[in-house]
Design a protein around this nucleic acid. Sequence first.
RNA 1: GGUCCCGUGGUGCAGUUUGGAGUGCACGCUGGCCUGUCAAGCCAGAGGUCGCGGGUUCAAAUCCCGUCGGGACCGCCA
Length: 619
Amino acid sequence: MPPRCQSRGQISSATCSRPQPASESTKRQGSTLVTHNPNAITALRSDLAGELRADDQGRRVAVCGWINARREHSQHLAFIDVRDHTGVVQCVVDNAHDLRSEYVVRVQATVTRRAAETVNPNLATGEIELKDCEVEVLARSDPPPIQIDARAGVDENHRLRYRYIDLRSERMQRNLRARALVNSALRAAMQRQGFVEVETPFLIASTPEGARDFVVPSRHSPGQFYALPQSPQLFKQLAMVGGIDRYYQIARCLRDEDLRADRQFEFTQLDAEASFVSQDDVLAFITEAVGDATEVVTSERTGEIPRLTWLEAMERFGSDKPDIRFGMELCDLTEVFATTDFNAFKAPSVKGICEPAGATKTRKQLDELTDKAKQWGAKGLVWMKVEPDLSLTSPVAKFLRDDEKQALVARLGAEPGDLVLVVADELARARHVLGLLRLELGRPAVNEGSLSFLWVVDFPLFEGLDETGAPIPAHHPFTMPNMADLELLDSAEPGVLLKVRSQAYDLTLNGWELGSGSVRIHRPDIQRKIFDLLGITPEEARQKFGFLLDAFGYGAPPHAGFAFGIDRLVALLVGEENIREVIAFPKTQSGADPLTGAPTAIDPRHLDELGLRLSPDPR
RNA sequence: GGUCCCGUGGUGCAGUUUGGAGUGCACGCUGGCCUGUCAAGCCAGAGGUCGCGGGUUCAAAUCCCGUCGGGACCGCCA
C-alpha cells in the first residue's frame, strides 16, 4: 500500500517525544504515520477508534480499546465494537466467540467504507468499518459488574465501588475531560492577568476558626498535630506580604463537615489574591476566569454578571445565595399587619410568598409544607388560597380584617388560583424559612435552564451575636469593613454593629455558592479594633494568628482575594446535579470510599509510634 | 444531632398498601442456531441469606422494633 498523504498533517518522528516502540512487533507501520490526531499515535496504535472517518478509507490502522459490544451472526460473520475515549468503531470479524465484553484488544485492520445500506448514521464512525482484522487480546475481563452503556441508572454505591469501570462511561469521560478543560482555561486566564501560581503546604497549623479540621498526628512530636488546610487563606495573604503581587492556585481544600450533593471533604478551589486592588478589580479578575471556563465547556460566553447587595438578596430571596432563575420573591407584609388583632402575626417581621397556581394543593400537602417550615425553625406557617373574587380561603381567614386581606393580596400581586404562604417571626427567621419554602415550591433542578451567575456584595461584617453579646464574623476576622461604615464600629449598640457592611462578596450560580472573597484588613489599627469587637484579646490574637500579625508589621500591601469551587462550577457547566459526578474518586455521604474501603483502622504499632491510644469504644 | 426516601439473582426494577410456595419484567451471563448487524435476533439454561438481627403470626420480601449501608435535605460548612 503506498503511503497516503492526509490533509490533516503529517507526523514526523521528530515531533513525537514519546518512548519508542518496545519491539519490532509493536512498531507502527510505515504508512500509518498519518493521522487525525498526533496524540493518537503510540507504540500500539495509529488512530483513535472514534476518530476514523470515510476519508481514511484504505488505510491500514491499529486501534486499541475495550470491546463495547459483540454481535455474532454465525460462525462466519460477527461484529465487535471497539471503544476508546473518543468513541466506538465497528470491526468485522469471522468469529468473535472468544472476544467478550470489556476485553482489551488491539485491532490492526483496513478502514473500509460501508455499503450504503449498512451505514449507521447514529455513529460518528458509521460510514466506515474495519475489515481484514487481526485482533490481539491484550487483557481479558470478567463480566463487568457495571454495563458501560447501561440503559437504566446504576446504584451509586455500586458505581463508586467499581469506579474504574464507571469511569469508562461516556458521561464520566465527558465530565472529567470538561473538568480538565476548565482547569487549563482557569490557569490560562489567571496567568494572562498576571497571576503567579504558588503552591502552599498541606500540613499546617490548626487554626481555631471555621470548619472542623482534618488533623494529622506528628511522629516527630507525639501529641502534636498538623491540620490539613481548609483553604490556603493565611498563606496567600503572606504571599502578598512577600511581594508576589498576584497569587493563584488550583488548591485542594479539606473540611471535616457533613457532606451534601455539593460538598465533599476534599474539594478544589481556584484560589486567588492580589495586591493594590479594589473589590471591583477582584470581581473583574474572577469574572474573566469564570467566563473563560464557561466558554470552554459550553461555547458560550457569560456576559456581565449581575450584582445584588446581600441585603437585597436576603429581602427578596431569603438567601445569601439566591437562585434568580425564577421569581416568587419574598414580600414584606409587616406594615400590612402592623395593627392586626391576629396574635400569630404580631411579630417583628411578617413576610410572604405567592406561588402562582399553587392553590390546587391538598390539605395533606399543605400540612407537609407546614411541617417543613417548623423543622426549618418557624413557629408555624399560614397558608391562604386565593379565590376567583380575590377573597382568601385559609384556616386563619376569620382572624384577619378585610382591609388586611385586601392589602395582602395587593402587596403580593396575588391572582386567583395562587397560594400564599406567610411566616411571622424574627426578621432573620422569616427570611430564612420563606427562602427555603420558595426553593421547595419553585426551584427548577439546579442543572436546568440557563446558567445564572450572580455576585452578592456588601455582606455584613457580623452575622449575629454570640451568647456573650460579642458579634460573630460573617466571613473571617481579616475582612475589611466598608470604609463608609467605619465609624459605626465605634458604636456600643449591637444593633448598629450588625449594620456594618464589609468588603466581602460571594459568587453564586443557580443557587449554589460558588465561592467568596473579601478585601483584607492590612491596617493594624483596624485589625485591632475588629479583634476587640470580636472579644479576641491581643494575647489570643497573638496565639491564633501571631505569624500573620507579625508579617503585617513589616509592610503589608492592601490586598483582596477570592476563591471558588471548581467542583461545583464544573458540575453545573456539564449539567450535573451532584459534584460526585465530576470527581474521579469521590466519597459517599458518610465519608467512606467504597472502592478503597477508607477510612480504615491502622496498625496498633503505628498508633504507638504516634503516641496515640484509642478510647475503649470509639463508636 | 434531626427529617424523609431507598435496600429483592451479576445489574436495574415490579411485587410490600390488603401476609399465603422466591412469583414476574428488562439487561447481563453460559450453551446452541443464524453471512450485514450495530443497545442484533431466535431457542435453551444457570443464577436468590428479599441488607442484617429480633418480634407478631399457622404462615413474613410484605406488619412491628432495632441495626447496617446508600441517597436528599435541616443543623453544621469563619
